[in-house]
Design a protein around this nucleic acid. Structure first.
Ligand SMILES: [Mn+2]
Ligand SMILES: [Mn+2]
Ligand SMILES: [Mn+2]
Ligand SMILES: [Mn+2]
Lengths: 220, 220
DNA sequence: AATTAAATTTAGGTTTGTCTAAAATAAGAT
DNA sequence: ATCTTATTTTAGACAAACCTAAATTTAATT
């Protein structure tokens, strides 16, 4: 039944990331994967024959439910390994992705389910992205941008959209991570900078640029 | 410098297992890898050009010191993952190999060294085979066959040469595993069966066939 | 409706790793 | 020394994934 090549899996995952349900175009996918449009067309024919995508010439493609299921399994593997690397092996935030990119293709279902159990069934990866469960169910993370958060409202950092090294460094310095509880005390419209309070600590100022990339959810 | 394909790595590891230092022939390697002699010849030319093997037509091949170093790194990865699977994810003895066969090709050096640390620098894998350290140094396991062990001599199971499922089942039933302390109480020359005592338990009988596959080292 | 530009597909190659069948070589037996 | 056989290498093909360049289709503009 199943058993797909690394390449096929990378294509399926990329389609999922661009559009879990909707239509993706050849050039979009080529850009995402750092490959050429011609290569994408070839692969789409193959994935169509394997019933993983719907595809008609010149009309783009979207995942079949089969394809989406596979994508979710790959995402699951990727994020569980990221969690393992960060939590157990003490890799830093920006290092986990590259390694997980390779590990996600080790295909043993039992391996992944046992890993999940070993890790204590984590809900999100180190970047705050939700981890699909063994059946491919994935939580919809209801998060809003820090710039939208009302003043003096208890919230928790859920997700960071820019996952570059520079971002990591800055967040580390400001002591902000996934799960950090904070509230916004003051906003300055001039430059969109804001003052925030992290737990009981004295307020700090962060730039509008930074705030734009931080997503939080309301505390229950 | 380094970065070898899965196929190249599997060839290098197979050569190492057949002959860490000595000469390996084309057909031997083809048999080991379930491939054809012609494919082996092709790969040997490639590995020669990468200075991983010494190779002259019709004369077989052996690993260069570079090749041996690579082999040891692959063996290191393989056995550390086997240990991880058995120890942390509770895989049984006979399941770990197939999965590790895939995981051994994830190439991050940092990953492996951190994994080693996380696991507490284990000396041997679940089958009793020694794990090379980060510099490729590997312990020479000084073990003798259980059939050679003198009577009433304290010893510890170090290694099992047959690693099949049937063997695992039998060993499980007899409560024998790597690290089990035992001594031989009586040998019967008629069928080479023997009575052994595991720690304080009552003696059990094992067949000559089984004893032949168990290797022990003297307790210090 | 005709022209042009952008997106996509097709055509034709390359690389890696595999295979089968044929040719070449080495080594043992007469 | 020649024959025979087993081993190894070469030759030629194939599949998977990729590439570039050319052709085609779609969509937007005059
Ligand atoms: Mn990947
Ligand atoms: Mn992630
Ligand atoms: Mn392998
Ligand atoms: Mn082993």
């Amino acid at each position: 039944m199943s058993n797909y090549s690394t390449s096929e899996e990378n294509y399926i995952k990329a389609i999922y990331h661009l559009q879990p349900e909707g239509v993706v175009t050849t050039n979009e996918l080529a850009a995402e994967l750092n490959t050429r449009a011609a290569s994408v067309t070839g692969m789409m024919k193959k994935l169509r024959s394997k019933k993983l995508v719907h595809y008609e010439s010149y009309k783009g493609f979207r995942l079949t439910s089969e394809g989406r299921k596979l994508a979710l399994m790959i995402v699951r593997r990727h994020r569980l390994w990221e969690f393992f690397l960060a939590e157990k092996l003490k890799f830093s935030w920006d290092e986990v992705h590259v390694v997980a990119e390779e590990m996600e293709h080790v295909s043993s279902k039992k391996l992944i389910d046992k890993l999940d159990e070993f890790l204590g069934f984590p809900r999100t990866d180190p970047h705050g992205d939700p981890i699909p469960d063994a059946n491919g169910r994935i939580e919809v993370v209801r998060s809003i941008c820090l710039t939208e958060l009302p003043l003096n409202t208890a919230s928790t950092v859920a997700y960071v959209s820019d996952q570059s090294t520079g971002m990591l460094e800055l967040l580390g310095h400001k002591k902000i991570a996934i799960g950090t509880a904070l509230e916004v005390k003051k906003k300055f419209s001039f430059d969109n900078s804001m003052e925030i309070r992290i737990r009981q600590q004295p307020v700090t100022t962060i730039s509008g640029e930074l705030a734009k990339n931080i997503f939080v959810k309301y505390d229950e």
